[in-house]
Simulated assay, not measured.
Amino acid sequence: MENSTVPLYFNLTMFINIGHYRYPAFVVCLLIYCFIMFANAVLITVISREKSLHEPMYLFVACLSFNALYGSIGFFPRFLMDLLSDTHLISRPACFIQLYVIYTFAAYELTLLGVMAYDRYAAVCHPLHYHRKMTIKTVTVLATIAFVYPAFSISACLFLSMKLPLCGNKIHKVFCANWNIVKLSCISTVSNNILGMFVTITTVFCPLFFVLYTYLRIVLVCWKSSSEFKGKVFQNCLPHIVSFATYSITVFCDVSLSRYDLEKVNPILAVILSLEFVVITPILNPLVYGLKLPAIRKQISRILLIDKIVMK
């Protein structure tokens, strides 16, 4: 406790010196950021404008796109600044704000994917009662729970982390991470670990097992159905399966990386693995849902066609 402090700044130490390559890297990351913002904004606009898309599945897709915008705004501006900077200090308040945004973004993604799995389960396994089960009121309640619970639970985790006396200020990441801050503590972190485990179970493992359960039920229903029915179900469920599998893999990579001795990992590989879940999913979701779901693809094509005609 003698050397404990409340640092005014944290030092993000995973940034590596790439010399003049920082400028091409900055341009590439800026283009990725612009694409994420544009593609997800288009998806939200199309779904909000077209009444034919005001159905549970598409409304949840719009929520995913909104979450992608939220997470990208919380991560990319600061990351782009750090790419061009020689020092990578971030103030304590800015660090915890970034931490809150990135962690809630990650939790929202999983809870929303869990809610979408229930929607697919209701549509396939209970088609006659689907419209009675999935009303606009139900969609609103499910989406609210998917956003509200992670917001409060992660706030509680960060509140405990903010109270810890720290014996250092170095965070070996390219963005602020709660586990890295907790490891700097000069005192016991048992309460942080218990609460963190509870939040992880409820926001990560519960949605994970629920999605696996719902798709097991869907597979059992499809097993006894016609090939035409199987094809239709596969077409509607494939985007969700791709999103869920991709996000699960990227989150697993980041969590595994945070528990590993990073000095034994190639620094470029470590940076790539730590960035996957904040970059790949916001890029992939609009591509998967925009191109794979016929109703959305049709509306996007129609709007683009109208714009071309107007411009002529």
Rank of each mutant, 00 (worst) to 15 (best):
P207Y: 05
A122T: 06
L293K: 00
F10G: 07
G290V: 02
F252Y: 15
P24I: 10
T5K: 13
T138N: 11
I16R: 05
V124Q: 07
M14G: 04
I249F: 09
F209G: 05
V27S: 00
V221Y: 15
T111D: 08
A117F: 07
Q235T: 11
C222V: 06
K224H: 14
P286G: 01
N3H: 13
K264V: 10
V174M: 08
I181V: 11
T5H: 10
S185K: 06
F105L: 03
C253N: 07
N3V: 13
C95F: 07
Q98V: 10
F66P: 06
Y108T: 01
I300T: 13
T87D: 04
I268L: 10
G71C: 07
F175S: 09
V141P: 04
T203P: 09
F38P: 00
V182G: 07
V271G: 12
Y33M: 08
L89H: 15
P286E: 01
P24G: 03
K137V: 12
I187C: 10
N67I: 01
S274V: 02
D261E: 05
E109L: 13
I145F: 12
V61Y: 06
H131K: 15
M37F: 06
V271W: 09
W179A: 10
W223A: 14
L212D: 00
S155N: 07
H172E: 11
F234R: 12
A143T: 10
R217K: 15
S185T: 11
L64T: 03
I309S: 12
V278R: 10
Y260P: 00
V182T: 14
N266G: 10
R217H: 13
L273Q: 03
C176L: 15
L110F: 09
F96C: 05
F159L: 11
Y260N: 08
L112E: 02
L142F: 09
A143G: 06
N11Y: 13
Y118Q: 05
A107R: 12
V279F: 02
V219A: 14
E228T: 13
P7M: 01
L112S: 04
L142Q: 04
T140F: 12
A62G: 09
H126R: 13
V27T: 04
T140N: 12
N40F: 01
L184I: 08
D86L: 12
L59K: 14
L110C: 10
R120G: 00
S153P: 10
L262R: 04
I241G: 05
L160N: 02
M134L: 03
I283S: 11
Y58R: 09
